[in-house]
Computed example of a mutant assay.
Amino acid sequence: MRLEQHFTRGCTLTLKIKFSNYHQITRSKTMPYYTRELDGIITTAKALFESIDLEN
C-alpha cells in the first residue's frame, strides 16, 4: 500500500465512481484522526459506497 511505503498517513478518503456514460459521483469522508490502517480505510470506503443509490 502506498501509505505504508511512504511512511505517511491520511485523514480524508475520497471515493470516485465513474459510469459508462461518463457521469461520475464522488463522496468523501474526513476522519477525526490520521490513519494508514487498511481495515479502517476499507470500512470507510464500504460505507461511502453503500451510501450511493445505484439502482438506475
Rank of each mutant, 00 (worst) to 15 (best):
L13A: 00
L48C: 04
E4M: 02
T12M: 03
T43I: 08
G40P: 00
D53W: 04
L15R: 13
D53N: 15
S51D: 13
C11L: 13
I41A: 06
T12H: 10
R27Q: 07
L54Q: 09
K16D: 02
E55Y: 11
L38Y: 06
R2N: 11
E55V: 15
H6G: 05
H6Y: 10
T30A: 05
E50C: 04
Q5I: 10
N56Q: 12
C11D: 14
L38M: 15
K16I: 01
L3G: 11
K18W: 06
A47D: 14
T8C: 13
F19D: 06
G40A: 04
E37T: 11
I17Y: 07
T30Q: 13
Y34V: 08
L13T: 05
Y34K: 05
I41T: 01
L48S: 01
F49T: 07
N21E: 06
I25Q: 05
F19I: 02
D39E: 11
Y34H: 10
G40D: 15
L15P: 07
T14W: 00
I42L: 02
K46G: 01
L38T: 11
A45K: 05
K18N: 15
F7H: 14
L15D: 02
M1Q: 12
N21W: 08
A47T: 08
E4R: 15
K46L: 13
R36Q: 14
E50D: 08
L15K: 04
A47C: 05
E55N: 14
L3S: 12
